[in-house]
C-alpha cells in the first residue's frame, strides 16, 4: 500500500475546482485512493466528500492508495496537492 503525508499549500483549500481536478487525477489509475485526515477516511474518488471535509490550507493529510497502480496513483495525487492543485 502507498502511504505518504502531504500539506495543502493552495490558499483556498479544497473548494470545488481543485477537488474535481483531484478526482480526475484519481480516475486515471487502477487504484483505490483514500485521504486520511484526523483519522477520518475520505474516498479519493468523491468530489462531494472531499469538499464536505473542508480541508484547509496548511493542514497535513495522508494519501493512501491500494491496487494495481497504487504507487503511480499515490505519487500523482501527492505531487498534485503539493504543487497547489492548479490554484
Amino acid at each position: 500500500m502507498f502511504s505518504e503525508k502531504v500539506t495543502l499549500v493552495n490558499p483556498q483549500g479544497f473548494h470545488m475546482r481543485p477537488a474535481s481536478l483531484l478526482v480526475g487525477e484519481v480516475a486515471k489509475y487502477d487504484a483505490v485512493v483514500t485521504i486520511v485526515r484526523n483519522g477520518n477516511e475520505i474516498p479519493g474518488n468523491s468530489l462531494m466528500a472531499i469538499m464536505a471535509a473542508g480541508i484547509k490550507c496548511g493542514e497535513e493529510i495522508e494519501i493512501r492508495a491500494e491496487g494495481a497502480q497504487e504507487n503511480e496513483a499515490g505519487r500523482a495525487v501527492v505531487d498534485f496537492i503539493a504543487a497547489g492543485m492548479g490554484d
Binding site: Q12, G13, H15, M51, A53, G54
Partner: peptide, 14 residues
C-alpha cells in the same frame, strides 16, 4: 449541511 459548516466561503456557497 456539511458544506455549510466547513467555514470555507467558496464551499459554503456550493
Amino acid at each position: 449541511t456539511m458544506f455549510e459548516s466547513t467555514g470555507d466561503e467558496l464551499t459554503m456557497q456550493r
